[in-house]
Structure formats: structure tokens, C-alpha cells
């Protein structure tokens, strides 16, 4: 479990995050919604260890430390997917191999992960294509496959379906849910969850710099995104 306590972040005079606390449990799906500019991306990047908060405490393996001291561990445990994914020049296969080689994954494990990613994300016919020539939906699919290859404890998705049509959104979410392992926590931020159909464990709404728990479930149950949750 990773616990973030009292996250504060300000850009100039504007307070983006104010006293935001959040727990992320292994295997759980957390949904964070909020209007554009509400600080969702900032929060996700702080969780990923990419952006520095003004103040924050992080509890990892039972020890509370400052965000700064936890940054390395956060980066090691998580993979962050940009809203507009960055694909390296080269083919789809080159991009997948990059994730494996930087993590020094070799031999049988390498083959297993690669085959699984190709199957799960339907990349078989795209392997030799230039990654940057893919459609928006395909690029997002490849970015997710590449992230899943590293089997992170924490998968952080920043508006992954923002530029997709309804069918692509449904396909993407289905692949996301199926690809995760039991211990992988997923945090997805989105300003618009219309048309998404998936089950989640926690739902927070970020409003005026504060995180409100709007989960409509009993502990242990999973709720389902539906149109009624959309403001």
C-alpha cells in the first residue's frame, strides 16, 4: 500500500492541490475525476515522482517519509502514461523492446512478457509498423502495452481515452482491465467518463484543490462507472 499525506501544490498564486491525501492499494482500481485544470494531472505526476509538490508525505513499506526522499522509490514502482503518449522513433517492436531492455529483462521471461503484451493488446499485425505512424488509439494501445511489459506495481494513466471514439474507449478499457495482474494498482484520471464501462474500487473527485471521496460502494465491493457519476 502507498499512502500520500497532505499533498500541497501551488503554481504562482493559484493553489492546485490543498491537503490532498490518498491511499493506493495493490490490485485496486482508483478513478479520479475533475474538471479541466482541476489538478488531476499534477496529482498523478506527483504520485509518479515526476513533479515536485510543495509539501507531501509518502508512506511506503510502513515508513512515512517526505516526497523528496520517496521520489526514487515512486519512480521505480510506477509507470506514468502521458495523455498524448510518447513513442520512440522506430517500430512498434522497437518500442516494446526498449521497455524490456532498460529493465534488463532477458531470456525466457522476456519472451513470455513480449508474447503476452502482443496478444493482450492485439499488436501482432502492427509489430513492423513505424510507431509514430499509428492512429491515436493504436498509439495509446502500444503505450499501454509497453508500460505493462515492465509489470509495474502502480500504473498511472492520464486521460488515456480522451481522444478516442466510443468503440476505441471500450476496447482500451477492456484491455486495461484484462492486462493488469492481481497486485497491480491502477490510477486513472479523466475529466470525462461518459461511455466508459468498467468497475472500480475508489472514485475521487478533485474539486477546488481538494480530493473528495465519491465512491458509492461498501468496502470490498467494486462500483461501476455509469452516466450518473458524471457531473
Amino acid at each position: 500500500m502507498i499512502r500520500f499525506v497532505e499533498i500541497y501544490k501551488r503554481y504562482g498564486r493559484q493553489e492546485i492541490l490543498s491537503d490532498v491525501s490518498l491511499e493506493i492499494h495493490p490490485g485496486e482500481f482508483t478513478l479520479i475525476t475533475g474538471a479541466n485544470g482541476s489538478g488531476k494531472t499534477t496529482l498523478l505526476r506527483i504520485i509518479a515522482g515526476l513533479d515536485r509538490p510543495d509539501r507531501a508525505g509518502v508512506m511506503l513499506v510502513g515508513e512515512m517519509r517526505s516526497w523528496r526522499k520517496s521520489r526514487k522509490a515512486l519512480r521505480k514502482r510506477s509507470v506514468y502514461l502521458h495523455q498524448r503518449p510518447y513513442l520512440f522513433s522506430g517500430t512498434v517492436l522497437d518500442n516494446l523492446r526498449f521497455a524490456l531492455s532498460v529493465n534488463r529483462i532477458k531470456g525466457r521471461d522476456r519472451r513470455r512478457r513480449l508474447e503476452r503484451a502482443i496478444d493482450n493488446f492485439f499488436l501482432d499485425s502492427l509489430l513492423d509498423r513505424e510507431a509514430r505512424s499509428l492512429s491515436g488509439g493504436e498509439q495509446q494501445r502500444l503505450a499501454l502495452a509497453r508500460a505493462c511489459l515492465t509489470e509495474p506495481e502502480l500504473l498511472l494513466l492520464d486521460e488515456p481515452t480522451a481522444n478516442m471514439d466510443a468503440a476505441s474507449r471500450a476496447q482500451f478499457m477492456s484491455m486495461l482491465i484484462q492486462s493488469g495482474n492481481r497486485n497491480q494498482a491502477i490510477v486513472l484520471v479523466s475529466h470525462d467518463i461518459v461511455g466508459l464501462d468498467f468497475r472500480y474500487d475508489h472514485h475521487f473527485d478533485l474539486d477546488d484543490g481538494r480530493l473528495l471521496d465519491v465512491t458509492r460502494t461498501k468496502p470490498g465491493e467494486r462500483s461501476r462507472v455509469s452516466l450518473t457519476l458524471v457531473k
Binding site: 509518479a48 515526476l50 519512480r75 521505480k76 510506477s78 509507470v79 506514468y80 502521458h82 498524448r84 503518449p85 510518447y86 520512440f88 526498449f98 521497455a99 532498460v102 529493465n103 509497453r146 508500460a147 515492465t150
Partner: peptide, 10 residues
Amino acid sequence: RGWETARTLG
């Protein structure tokens, strides 16, 4: 994004 992607992938 290129730098961050490489770093976040490990």
C-alpha cells in the same frame, strides 16, 4: 515527454 517516458519505463 521523451525523457519522462524513458525514465518512467525504468
